[in-house]
């Protein structure tokens, strides 16, 4: 078996435990079914291109992008956990190179992102099935969003993992980053209608671009702006991936 595949096997074993999988389903369920229906009295429907989406359908689709971010942030801290528990050095004195280790993390993050997206799509389907327009063109958008989103947020988590050593610092930074990404985005509410500073701030957040691409893939509303957002996501994820790779390659032992 190729060394990268062996490491991916190991990464998935330690990442995809029962608790993680259950949490990946329960966490968005609460947002979708509790938050979604609770906020319906305030937000009855959301304009979306030439359509109108029921708020539960809007939030359910946002949760797909949110869940990709959430799960890949968790996977991205494999590096931090490995450093903390001595497994980073242990792997590097084994039959592996740093390149193997980096690639295995990328593949792990991608797989976890796809699994997360699939889980939440299955769970949220009852809410958005009436508005869904899956076709041969829009399905690849969902796969694109899952993979690129995973690489992007996984790289952010990897960068943080290589920079921080203390548990306190790590928790503070990850939670702050997580909160910003989660709430300053169009995952839960549209940019239109928000106060201007906030609606501008949304577009400094890659999660906004990610959920917009997910919604385009689900509800068939692909336009030039979505294409630009995809380009931004690719550029950002490649840049962050290269930074993460360089930092990991230079990590002193």
């Amino acid at each position: 078996m190729h060394p990268v595949i062996r490491l991916v096997n190991r990464n998935l074993t330690i990442s995809l435990n029962k608790g993680f999988l259950i949490w990946q389903v329960i966490f968005p369920l609460i947002y979708i079914f509790v938050g979604g229906f609770a906020y319906t009295t305030l937000i009855d429907s959301v304009p979306y291109g030439d359509k109108t989406l029921a708020y539960p359908a809007y939030i359910a689709s946002g949760m797909i992008g949110f869940n990709i971010m959430n799960s890949t942030l968790v996977s991205g801290i494999i590096i931090w956990n490995d450093r903390r528990h001595g497994m980073f050095e242990q792997i590097l004195v084994g039959p592996f190179t740093r390149t193997h280790y980096i690639l295995s993390n990328v593949y792990t993050i991608g797989i976890v992102g796809l699994i997360s997206a699939a889980l939440i799509t299955a769970v949220g389907y009852p809410l958005f099935f009436e508005s869904v327009e899956f076709n041969l063109f829009t399905m690849p958008l969902l796969i694109f969003a899952s993979v690129i989103g995973s690489i992007l947020f996984g790289s952010i988590a990897s960068i943080i993992s290589t920079r921080l050593k203390s548990s306190e610092g790590f928790n503070v930074v990850i939670n702050t980053v997580f909160l910003f990404f989660a709430f300053v985005s169009t995952a839960f509410y549209p940019a239109e209608g928000s106060p201007q500073p906030l609606s501008v701030a949304f577009y400094f957040n890659p999660l906004t671009y990610l959920v917009d691409v997910v919604r385009a893939g689900m509800f068939g509303n692909f336009d030039t702006f979505v294409a630009i957002e995809m380009l931004v996501l690719v550029t950002l994820s490649l840049t962050l991936f290269l930074i993460a790779t360089k930092l990991l390659a230079k990590l002193e032992l």
């Binding site: 330690i14 956990n81 528990h85 497994m87 004195v93 084994g94």
Partner: peptide, 12 residues
């Protein structure tokens, strides 16, 4: 190699 630093998979 058994390094001086402890190394283990906490969840396994």
């Amino acid at each position: 190699v058994v390094l001086q630093q402890p190394s283990y998979e906490p969840t396994l």
